[in-house]
Nucleic acid binder design. Sequence first.
DNA 1: GAGCTTGCTTGATGAGCGTCAATGCAGATC
DNA 2: GATCTGCATTGACGCTCATCAAGCAAGCTC
Lengths: 248, 248
Amino acid sequence: MNDLSSPLHSLKVTCSNCSLRELCLPVGLNRDEMAQLDAVIRQSRRFKRGEYLFRSGEGFRSLYAVRTGYFKTCVSSQDGREQVTGFHMSGELMGLDGISSNTHGCDAIALEDSEVCELPFSRMESLGRDIPSLQHHFFRLMSREIVRDQSVMLLLGNMKAEERLAAFLLNLSQRLASRGFAANDFILRMSREEIGSFLGLKLETVSRTLSKFQQQGWILVDHKHIQLVRPEELKALVAGCSQANSAG
Amino acid sequence: MNDLSSPLHSLKVTCSNCSLRELCLPVGLNRDEMAQLDAVIRQSRRFKRGEYLFRSGEGFRSLYAVRTGYFKTCVSSQDGREQVTGFHMSGELMGLDGISSNTHGCDAIALEDSEVCELPFSRMESLGRDIPSLQHHFFRLMSREIVRDQSVMLLLGNMKAEERLAAFLLNLSQRLASRGFAANDFILRMSREEIGSFLGLKLETVSRTLSKFQQQGWILVDHKHIQLVRPEELKALVAGCSQANSAG
DNA sequence: GAGCTTGCTTGATGAGCGTCAATGCAGATC
DNA sequence: GATCTGCATTGACGCTCATCAAGCAAGCTC
């Protein structure tokens, strides 16, 4: 099972002052191309917990890559129903849905104090024409988002509460591990309600299911602090749901 | 509410022997650019009902645009659970999920005898570098798919059976209308089970809900022949679910 | 035309999860 | 330290939808 969520977790390019390129931009660029890229990427901006990076309906100009912190993206309906469409950690890109209509299609909200790099899209686009590997990488990133969305559809359309939550925990674990953090001991950055919104469940069901996992000795729950004691049991739960692990 | 499902339904470019360009490729190309495009697009291929256009796991080489007919795309889990991720009619593009891993991530199956145009991706990619408007159009198509997926998530995560089915019928209606077909009188190309799979419901629930709509005088159901008698009632059902109409 | 297959409808029943409500816990504020 | 506030937990109950099952209609094959 590949980690389809982190754009390029295995490729680290160390250079200059913006750590973004370590995380989500392609390798295979020569020094001159790197310099061109440097000129396009704007300095990073900071957001406090709860602040909006962008809102649905706003004009689209840029993509945003998380440098540090956590974001959620969500679509809201007129009657106030909210669907969290994803949680985004360092190296991940947000805003791809804005390209089609030149308008952002979802809200992006910081779940903790965070930092993002801004990528002005039209400049990235023209740079892509000069640097084929950059263009290709962008296509891949967008495609990866589509794959991720498909696995979320599988989760929402086919899986039960326990399976959804197990898949969610394993996916978080995997993404954290790929960033060098502990795989089986982490802090949730989002509330039960936000988890529920993402998974198509109510917060009470999320809470109850976490308790059930704990009773079975599979995990330890201390508020937002989660420890996976027997991740293999969680994996067994989602076994067969092959795509589910890449949902994030 | 925009029709985000049909790539470029409002833009018709008539030229040469492949009607694809009437449907899903961008305008703004001069004669020379058109010729370049002609050289890249392969002749269309025909598929019988039930045939696979591609399968999950196969190597990715090309995108496919529906010329005539209907396709479904679906992801399957190891234990055989199947999630239909979309239904695709003329002018719509399939295979975008394959770019990220160079491997198709879903199955594409003809729901009736159909015809597709093949777009070899690497050649389209390099052509995009020469023709900026083509490149931009490709980014927009991919982004549109992401927007569509998000609205499906909203549907699967937040809506009840009646709302899902109403949204589904209205979406079909809208896409057919944008292609010049009757908006309120159409034939379903997919089974109740496939509708259910797409909407996260069982076939019995789909059947019952259609019957309920009919009893209320909102639609007429004669097997696969559907007539929307009072579409405004269906719209009222999904009112508030702003994104739902673009799910397809 | 008989008999089969496939897909749809409809009913009865129950499980799973949503809803409502009470309580608990922890950190923030003063 | 006392109170407040937001979030989480837990229980009781009910609704939606899944499940199981029977029957029907249309389209095959022979």
